[in-house]
């Protein structure tokens, strides 16, 4: 204590100096507008900088609370997501937009659900075996559709199994049209790529562009009109130059095909009986 007092007594002039300088600068900033403004500006800048630093530090310290809040929200959203997923699953199998459209188009048809049992590849031709047969009311020349589009046509029936000629068979020939334009042609497969088929005989005046939808025309009596087949990926000239050939990206994925429906349309029987009657009237037909 004594040393402190001694120190103060000995260097009193230093403290006096500091006090008088403080008085001088107070006078300076108080009564000289130029120096006062410079001082205020500089001090303001320093204060702003300090405030900014303080704000940054504070927000950094708040991160813990922000984080816990985010975790809470995340859990909430996860729960909500689960709930919605459940609700969607309860709604039924319409998980694919095309699927729902196909179901809509085939709403007035009686359908038989079937599973693909095996697929056969012979001489670069593909066949599909499904686990429904005559016992389930399946007859040859009934249409087969999958969730993503037309699959093929029933060819042979056993009691519990049926052989289907898919679109990816070179013997397959399906009457199709381009949606909206009513341009008709026959869909065939060239034996190369399971994903693509060709639609021939599209007239040259047809306005067809990429991504147009190809659907069944309804002419074959196997399929009702308007069932999704695929989308146009390319428009080519036919070999004779008289028409267009469309390369169609098939909707059905034949490499992973599992669940299909077999359409038992009553049109088939009706058309057949009409044909028979016509044949009776005109033996040449």
């Amino acid at each position: 204590m004594r040393t402190i007092l001694e120190f103060l007594r000995r260097y009193n002039y230093l403290f006096l100096f500091l006090v008088l300088e403080a008085v001088s600068f107070t006078l300076l900033f108080r009564f000289n507008s130029y120096q006062g403004n410079v001082w205020l500006t500089a001090a303001g800048r320093v204060t702003a900088r300090l405030n900014a630093l303080y704000g940054e530090g504070e927000s950094y310290l708040n991160l813990r609370y922000v984080n816990s809040d985010l975790v809470r929200r995340n859990i909430l959203l996860q729960q909500q997501n689960e709930k919605l997923r459940e609700a969607l699953a309860k709604k039924g199998g319409a998980s694919h937009f095309t699927d729902s459209l196909t179901q809509q188009a085939a709403a007035d048809l009686s359908m038989t659900a079937a599973n693909v049992v095996s697929s056969i590849t012979q001489r670069r031709n593909n066949y599909i075996v499904v686990n429904r047969g005559t016992a389930d009311g399946i007859r040859p020349e009934q249409g087969v559709v999958g969730g993503q589009g037309v699959v093929g046509i029933v060819y042979l029936c056993e009691e519990h199994n049926s052989l289907v000629i898919p679109l990816t068979n070179r013997r397959s020939n399906l009457s199709c049209r381009v949606r909206g334009g009513n341009y008709f042609g026959s869909l065939t497969w060239d034996g190369k790529d399971l994903r693509y088929a060709t639609l021939d005989d599209i007239p040259r005046y047809a306005k067809v562009k990429k991504d147009d939808i190809v659907e069944t025309s309804g002419f074959s009596a196997v399929f009702p009109p308007g069932l999704f087949v695929g989308r146009v990926t390319e428009v080519r000239n036919s070999s004779d130059g008289q028409s267009y050939t469309l390369i169609v990206h098939l909707g059905a994925d034949f490499s992973t095909l599992r669940d299909v429906n077999i359409i038992s349309t009553s049109y088939k029987a009706e058309t057949d009986s009409l044909r028979q009657r016509a044949a009776q009237l005109e033996p040449d037909l």
Binding site: Y13, L20, S24, R30, Q35
Partner: peptide, 20 residues
């Protein structure tokens, strides 16, 4: 001196430092 030149504080601050 400041009072005479209407610059309160300037010469006072300099004078105090000179005195030290």
């Amino acid at each position: 001196a400041d009072m005479g030149s209407n610059t309160p504080g300037i010469a006072a601050a300099a004078g105090t430092a000179s005195g030290l």
